[in-house]
């Protein structure tokens, strides 16, 4: 690989007080690819994502996005490039703002004009009816809300989406719709994804490469193909795989 990767994380460490929860994690994601982080709760996978997104400044190591190193404090331009989608579409949208207001906000923050057209176009892109625009979040279903959250992340035209368990609060039929939407968007906009999930099947569906976290360390990085074929090296990866495959065999 000659071009520098879109995301380059090198020996990332994060501590809460005197407890180190991310102990030197490194990975690279080439532009337009999807990297998955799996692990159980407490493994540090979400903490990696939060450090990457700038939500947590107390880290050490090196993080570079699109070839430029970033520090704990991020400039506004960073947030145009990198956006995040959270797990709970009930908690991540302002309950007293209309969808129109929610989607306009990033445009105002970044000083982008053409608000009317952009909001309408982004709603269409995430396959929401135009009528949704003047509704409040509580008037939408969970799946529709997650589409709004994705639209909000997309509206400032970022290059990187950080996805923290984007489908685990949703029903499986809705999960399928959201996963298809994310796959389409990545192809159309050449987006780079980092996807955090505890669900191996979901991660392998969307991501070509997968990092397995355990106790704050990335114990294995492997391709989705190797994971599917059972060519995992680390016992924890194998255990997670066995549990996931065990449920598929009905």
């Amino acid at each position: 690989m000659t071009a520098s990767p879109m995301i380059d994380v090198d020996r990332l460490r994060v501590s809460f007080g005197d407890k180190e929860v991310v102990k030197g994690v490194s990975f690279r994601v080439p532009a337009g690819e999807c990297f998955g982080l799996v692990g159980e709760s407490g493994s540090g996978k979400s903490t990696v994502l939060r450090a990457l997104s700038g939500l947590n400044g107390a880290w050490s190591g090196r993080i570079a996005v699109a070839g430029a190193e970033v520090g704990p404090k991020r400039h506004r331009a960073f947030f145009r490039k990198v956006q995040m989608v959270f797990q709970d579409p009930y908690g991540s949208l302002h309950p007293r703002q209309t969808i129109d207001r929610i989607l306009s906000e990033p445009l105002l923050v970044h000083g982008l004009g053409d608000v009317e057209r952009r909001v309408a176009a982004t709603l269409a892109e995430v396959a929401l009816p135009a009528a949704v625009r003047f509704r409040f979040p509580h008037q939408l279903s969970g799946g529709q809300r997650q589409r709004v959250a994705i639209a909000r992340a997309l509206i400032a035209e970022p290059e990187v989406l950080l996805l923290d368990e984007p489908t685990s609060a949703l029903d499986v039929s809705v999960q399928a719709e959201i996963l298809n939407l994310l796959a389409d968007l990545r192809r159309q906009r050449r987006l780079t994804y980092v996807l955090v999930s505890h669900n191996l099947a979901v991660v392998a569906h969307l991501c070509a490469r997968i990092g397995v976290m355990l106790g704050g360390e990335m114990v294995e990085e492997l391709s989705a193909e190797d994971l599917r074929a059972g060519r995992a090296q680390h016992p924890h990866t194998r255990e997670l795989r066995t549990l996931s495959v065990g449920l598929e065999e009905v």
Partner: peptide, 20 residues
Amino acid sequence: RGLLDCLPSLTHPRERLPVL
């Protein structure tokens, strides 16, 4: 059938998931 079908699978990868 739709519920079973729309689950992503580790062992049987698919390009797109069928939607219910």
